[in-house]
Design a protein around this nucleic acid. Structure first.
Ligand SMILES: [Zn+2]
Ligand SMILES: [Zn+2]
Ligand SMILES: [Zn+2]
Ligand SMILES: [Zn+2]
Lengths: 136, 136
DNA sequence: GCAATCGTGTTATGAGATAACGTGACAAAC
DNA sequence: GTTTGTCACGTTATCTCATAACACGATTGC
């Protein structure tokens, strides 16, 4: 197995617990919400959650939503297109849709390069109402 | 004068003070940093800053940077292209470059529309190293 | 006058994140 | 086999960011 690809089986106990909490949820969770979910599993302090989250984000298994101060499990496991992610966040139901778009990523690269800016990470978060909630 | 366009002259005292603090700074400021800058002007509590910031953001004079939990004065005063903003944030010097790009905005609208998503607000924040800091 | 609205001031509290310390497990180096 | 380094883990305290709740005064429209 590729040493750079992290799967659930390679996670530590705490990382696996946090990953499980995020995977079961259909919307983003804050670190403190995760902590509450894991009290019965022995979690006592925020740092236990944050340390696991740091690693999970590093592994590409979890994304941080800056505009929500919350975290979601990646919906594209094993996908390497993670340079080009955008999130559509429904302000009604809270659900998040993760999309990967090459042309968007290209445009961001162009803009950065035109400004001589060495791009490391892109944050694209769209707020609005999802199709389900519009219909309702 | 157009009633929907807010200029500095229409601001309340607190709003003007906060706007002044942000305008003088060449990098984003947190609400609490602004508070510290304005203690001599009578500011005592965070809420005074946050209330002014809420209005300034509403007027389009100030932008909130989600990935920094900080605020910057808009560099395009009077410009109405504020549907399409992206920020390039230098992780070395902290300076922020605000850019407005139509083709980026179009692509975001396309993506949303394709998903039946009613787009309200876009957050695009690019992290990296600015050209000045690369040269140094 | 009187109600409605808005900006303001103050205190307390909630929510998000990290610093600083120490422990135990494990593997490489000697 | 002991030393050294690294890493995950646990705990406490602290820091930063943001809002709730309440009260006061000025302005406007009736
Ligand atoms: Zn992903
Ligand atoms: Zn929805
Ligand atoms: Zn602007
Ligand atoms: Zn720089």
């Amino acid at each position: 197995m590729n040493e750079h690809v992290h799967t659930t089986s390679e996670l530590t106990k705490n990382q696996a617990l946090v990953m499980g909490a995020l995977s079961q949820s259909d919307s983003p969770l804050s670190a403190y919400t995760i902590l509450d979910h894991l009290r019965d599993d022995g979690f006592r302090a925020p740092l236990q959650v944050y340390r696991a989250l740091d690693k999970l984000v590093e592994f590409g298994l979890v994304h941080r939503l800056e505009s929500l101060n919350a975290f979601v499990a990646c919906r594209h496991p094993g996908c390497d297109a993670h340079q080009a992610i955008a999130f559509m966040i429904c302000e009604t139901c809270g659900q998040v849709n993760e999309i990967s778009d090459t042309s968007l990523a290209e445009r961001l690269k162009q803009l950065a390069s035109k400004a001589g800016f060495a791009l490391k990470k892109s944050t694209v978060e769209l707020r609005g109402i999802c199709s389900n909630c519009q219909a309702a």
